[in-house]
Design a protein around this nucleic acid. Sequence first.
DNA 1: CTGTGTGAAGGCTTTCACAGCC
DNA 2: GGCTGTGAAAGCCTTCACACAG
Lengths: 207, 207
Amino acid sequence: MEKRTEIPRKSIYRLSIYQRCLERLKTNDVETVSSSALAKAAGVKSTQLRKDLAHFGQFGVRGLGYNVGALADVIVDVLGTSSLQAVILVGMGNLGAALSRYGGFGKEGFEISAAFEADPQRAKTVRAGVPVFPAEQMSAYVIEKQVKMAILAVPVEVAQSVANELVSSGVQAILNFSPIHLKVPDHVVVNSVDLALELEHLSYFIK
Amino acid sequence: MEKRTEIPRKSIYRLSIYQRCLERLKTNDVETVSSSALAKAAGVKSTQLRKDLAHFGQFGVRGLGYNVGALADVIVDVLGTSSLQAVILVGMGNLGAALSRYGGFGKEGFEISAAFEADPQRAKTVRAGVPVFPAEQMSAYVIEKQVKMAILAVPVEVAQSVANELVSSGVQAILNFSPIHLKVPDHVVVNSVDLALELEHLSYFIK
DNA sequence: CTGTGTGAAGGCTTTCACAGCC
DNA sequence: GGCTGTGAAAGCCTTCACACAG
């Protein structure tokens, strides 16, 4: 599957959203959907949805709409989410522990294969089916299992150094929950989720 | 404080990031910072930082840079985060429980004053200093305390209906953790954090 | 007549280049 | 010399308008 056709990052984001909506339609046994209906469910304009899809082909039937199953398959293929991706979780504090139990990942085709924790008290247990190992073993595990994705839920003070360790072990994508801008090489992608920041952002809009 | 000067949403986001970085500089007793240094810490270009600040005035000294404390004060004022905002948390499942314990909010000036939960088993307790009430009392609480912000961490099936209830009780901003596009009136702002979506997005970039 | 696909237009952000001030 | 502030240019993304297909 070729993904070098430079689809804009924002479109990629929306593709995931469309996929989510299509999945819901599928379980409701809906076979066909128009761009406007799907767009409304996803919270975007119909023209935008069509433009997004246009980046990698034509799938609709004029006058009718899109076949739900077929479109979902194409999007899955483009996103590369067809194969189950192994992900490790680093940091088993509040957030980390909650994420290990969070069912939403598995539903979307991700499996947290292992977790790592620096505090020896919290390591060496199994939480919600996820084995927790001491932090020292992280690098070896990543190399051995060729892990490509990591969820980083460690305290902000150590976030950068842990990220460095992950990157040098071969991790290519990091979902970062620390309130800091991680510096990584160009070939590594970081996605930051800063919970406090989101709240702060909202408060601006309150009258 | 006037916030009608239409600062773009993206700038607002970055302002929060700058503020975070300034706070760190302050604790390190740094008094002055250049736009390029601050920009690097925040992960943006220096020109962008200056453009962002230009939306609401001039604060730098040419040839020198910005006074850390003064700039932080101005940003806090613009963002409206100077006063402690009361926030309620709805849903005490995995994620909700973790959020109630998450210290990052308090540090940034938000206080979760109460949590609400539909399952009577989980309600009627106190978790990490946050009182948990049954879901039926939510609306009354919001109205009485004039709560303006809510964190929504309920199952996706009920997210929209709970959001409706919050909105009709007077909530103006919602931080939504359900993987769904919430439909709300124009005067309400929603910020969605979709954890599985972020992971999915990352997987696209893995070679 | 309904609904897709798409060139062109429009709008928004970012970046550049440089003037102005310390 | 160093660094801010900003008009102008460039780039990117969204929206419009409409041709085209079933």
